[in-house]
Each structure stands twice: as C-alpha cells, then as structure tokens.
C-alpha cells in the first residue's frame, strides 16, 4: 500500500516535470542513475551484513546490548555509535529496522537513527572550519542531547 503510494507519487511528479521541461527532467534521470551507481555496492554490503547479523548474532546479545534490559546504557551506546559512524540514512534504515525486529529497544534505535543524521564527529573539523569551532561543537552537542531526549520520549510513547 505504502509502496504503491510512493510509486504513484514519483510517477505523478515525473510526468508533471516532464511536461514542464523535458531536458531538465531527462537530466534528473541522469542524476538518479549517478546516485544509484554510488549507492549500489554499499547497499548490497549492508543488506548482506544484515543477513549475517540476524543469522549469526543470537537475539539475546542484541537485547542485552541495546534491548530493553540494557536500559539507558543501551540507548547511550546507540547514540554514541550513531554519532561516530558516517553512513547514509537510507542504508541505515533497513539495518535499524532489522535490529528493531530482533528485540532492540525503540529508544536505542531512535537514538541511533537521530544521532546518525544530526551528529557528525567525523565531519566536525569541516563544520568548525565553515562556522567556527564554538558553533560546530554546540550544534553537535545540543543535537546529541536532543537526540537522547527524542529517543527516551519515543521509547515511552511506543511501547
């Protein structure tokens, strides 16, 4: 159902743009292809990794480290990992979804996803160069704190 909606939306948007400006829309397809080429291998890698994680890692390990029994430490761990690693969100969502299904805590998954997109330790030097050290530090630090808050609220709401 949801998938069909997206297909319909994309088809509609594409048709509309096509009639407005053919060349522009044709070049958008080239952008799509470029994007596909850049993400094909990483996506394959992450999907295969999911297979290994779910196939080899016992469910108890997942629930002990980032499950409900891990409590706040699990959430904090997920937030720290999300802050450090630099993977694109669309690759991370399938992984996060699979962890959620295997018994990870809602809060931990939310913390991971939120810090992943908002906090970037690796890109911090670049951000500091662009906006100043103070700005970069506080933007990331505040994002980290708010990510934890968002995660805890989500854990409380979605049981």
């Amino acid at each position: 159902m949801f998938v069909w909606l997206i297909w319909a939306a994309a088809a509609l948007a594409f048709t509309f743009c096509f009639f407005k400006n053919r060349e522009k829309t044709a070049s958008s397809l080239r952008v799509s292809l470029k994007f596909l080429r850049s993400m094909a291998l990483p996506t394959l890698l992450i999907i295969w990794t999911i297979g290994f994680v779910l196939g080899l890692l016992p469910t108890e390990v997942i629930s002990r480290t980032i499950g409900r029994e891990a409590g706040f430490m699990g959430v904090a761990l997920a937030a720290v990992v999300g802050s450090i690693v630099l993977i694109q969100a669309f690759i991370a969502f399938p992984l996060a979804g699979s962890l959620l299904r295997e018994g990870a805590n809602v809060s931990a998954v939310a913390a991971f996803v939120t810090t992943l997109v908002m906090v970037g330790i690796v890109t911090l030097p670049l951000e500091a160069k662009c906006f100043g050290k103070k700005f970069a530090f506080w933007r990331n630090f505040l994002s980290f704190l708010f990510a934890l808050m968002i995660a805890l609220i989500m854990g409380a709401v979605l049981k």
């Binding site: 998938v3 997206i6 297909w7 939306a9 994309a10 088809a11 948007a13 594409f14 743009c17 522009k24 829309t25 070049s27 958008s28 397809l29 080239r30 952008v31 799509s32 292809l33 994007f35 596909l36 996506t43 999907i47 669309f90 399938p94």
Partner: peptide, 17 residues
C-alpha cells in the same frame, strides 16, 4: 529495498535538478 528504490531514485533526481 528494490520494491521502493526506483521511485525514490526518481524523486531524488527531480529534487536535485
């Protein structure tokens, strides 16, 4: 992934251009 990827790719391309 494949069921949802093509329309997303189209949207990404449209946004970019």
């Amino acid at each position: 992934m494949l069921s949802i990827l093509p329309p997303i790719l189209i949207l990404v391309g449209l946004f970019e251009v």
